[in-house]
Design a protein around this nucleic acid. Sequence first.
DNA 1: CTACCAGTCCTTTTT
DNA 2: GGACTGGTAG
Length: 734
Amino acid sequence: MSDRLLAGLNDQQLAAVTLPAQPALILAGAGSGKTRVLTTRIAWLIQTHQASPQGILAVTFTNKAAKEMVARISAMLPINTRGMWVGTFHGLCNRLLRAHHRDAGLPQTFQILDAADQLSAIKRLLKGSGIDDEKYPPRNVQLFINDAKEAGLRSGSVEVDDPYGRKLVELYAMYDAQCQREGVVDFSELLLRCYELLVRNEPVRQHYQERFGHILVDEFQDTNALQYRWLKLLAGSRSAIFAVGDDDQSIYAFRGANVGNMADFEREFRVQNVIRLEQNYRSHGNILDAANALIRHNARRLGKNLWTAEGTGEPVRVFEAGSDGLEAAWLVDEVRHLVADGLARREIAVLYRSNAQSRVIEHALFNAGIAYRVYGGLRFFERSEIKHALAYLRLIENPADDTAFLRVVNFPPRGIGARTLEQLQDAARAHAQSLYAAVGAVAGKAGANLAAFVRLIDSLRFDTASLPLAEIVEAVIDRSGLVAHYRADKDGLDRVENLEELVNAAAAFVAEEGYAQDAAAAQADAAAALPSPLAAFLSHASLEAGENQAAEGQDALQLMTVHAAKGLEFHSVFITGLEEGLFPHENSLQELDGLEEERRLMYVAITRARRRLYLSFAQSRMLHGQTRYGIRSRFIGELPEGCLKWLTPRLREATGVRVGEWRGERVQPAAAASLRAGQEKNGYRIGQTVRHARFGEGVIITLEGSGNDARARINFGAQGIKELLLAIAKLEAA
DNA sequence: CTACCAGTCCTTTTT
DNA sequence: GGACTGGTAG
């Protein structure tokens, strides 16, 4: 039986799957069968009776990864996976907090704020306490609070020594108090509150420490400080942490991920079992050679070298375009040939560093009539009409939720304006009440409108109390006036359809979660203090924003940022916009280890390709409504020349293309003419290559001002982009 | 109270 | 170039 489970694993995979119950660190390179090892490990532990499903906790970062894990385990073992705790950090913390809400100091009906809800809660706090939001931008306050929480710090423990910082700490404390009053928690609060529960409550901690003999962590390189401490606490002294990760694919330091957790884990847990999965089952040799050569330029690595049993395959193709538009035109042409040769469009990915780059490419694809799908837009539960409907549902569940209250109190419009709400907020603050509870304090016409709104919510709560979830949602979208409002709008049809889809989503949710279908069973659930289907659905909506809007299924080209491509693979991959300042991004050069993270990002991008890889860059590009002239990314220079095949001639400089030299197979030479558009100013020209005594050779990106104030922004490649005063800087034409 | 226009600001992002 | 915010006019 277990022979079949383990069949086909290579030596390292087998060693990892069958490790004893001790702390283990699996360094799993791209395409090395990481998920397979993780799921087979779980199946093997259960099948060999080393663990029961109840004794297993598996943590991932995305819902998608969690679902896939459950699906693969179910396919391997004929067991009920329900007893197993497999989920995201946030999902698992939510589960724990629901079960122990009293011990955690939360109301049973606590709601989860997503990032947008949190921001609006902060804006409301600033406004309510008369704080200048120019001096304290809500976004910065949000970052400060989340950073602190993710470092495990409450407002009382954050160390600051300047007045500005002290004010931020004060705002942090006020924000937490506001959330507590309203019965809401943000994403980082889920983790911190759960961590504190385990720290303070010994019986609860011991219960879970004893229960989970095995803790398995996916994408360990992406864990932040708090997540690591949470894992450590939950593991206690007995349970075995099986951590799988790849330091070379750590691309989320900018949002608090700490690769250092891998080394800390190794040291603090005295990990004896470090296993490297280096055989890559995805890509051909040239692609892997390119990836390996690139990543060797990073200094801080645990060390790993991917290899493949497949052949070298095709060379990596490199294309230099005159402009972003020409890069897109070339790409369209190349895609056409690939498709004509029989490759499915969904097997081709176009990757870029930042979302803004997709527009030009989309434009070209659209005009060429090539079906494409852009990842990473609005997701289902983030759409405004859906958030409105959810806000009504949240008020039914928890009337103290002021964020939800403010979102829909005048939507659809019911004659309650800013003035009225100001009065209401003053009254609520004066009596330390929720907005909902304070409506009686506003008199007159406006007060009557407010009272009518509260009556609407109350009657919805009363009338739907015993209805199935889908019918509650239906009643809400109908009686709130949302559907009628969007029907009256000539562009509202999509929104009406989405609201109807929400009813379906509710029905599907109930079916999937196996909620009690009849009244008697529902009562039993209530007696067991299980959260109501509505409460569970609201958590689900916050924790899992749902699918992307783009239609799934049809055979379309895949467009996405490099970040979004992590974990995916394609037959052919285009990495576009490989220019200094863009990839690596200029902002990263100022950050500590920023360039290394950019390089890891490039590493992730390269390793997405199975068979064919294209790299492209453009000499000029429209950015922020301005033409910028860039030079080729240093990352191209870090790849072994032997793996590459240049589709365009190699040029010494970024400028000065001679049209006649273009011999790339399918390039229109005429297009190169647009290069010389640079405007002349103070004797310099945009796009001109100049030499600086300290920074070396660079390309002029912008020219501004005149006379003594004339300035130029110059891209010096590895030295970064500098703004120089032409009157002072000694520049010579190169 | 709503609708429209001007000014600002722009990496990456899951939960 | 475009999304979002804030101010003002109706």
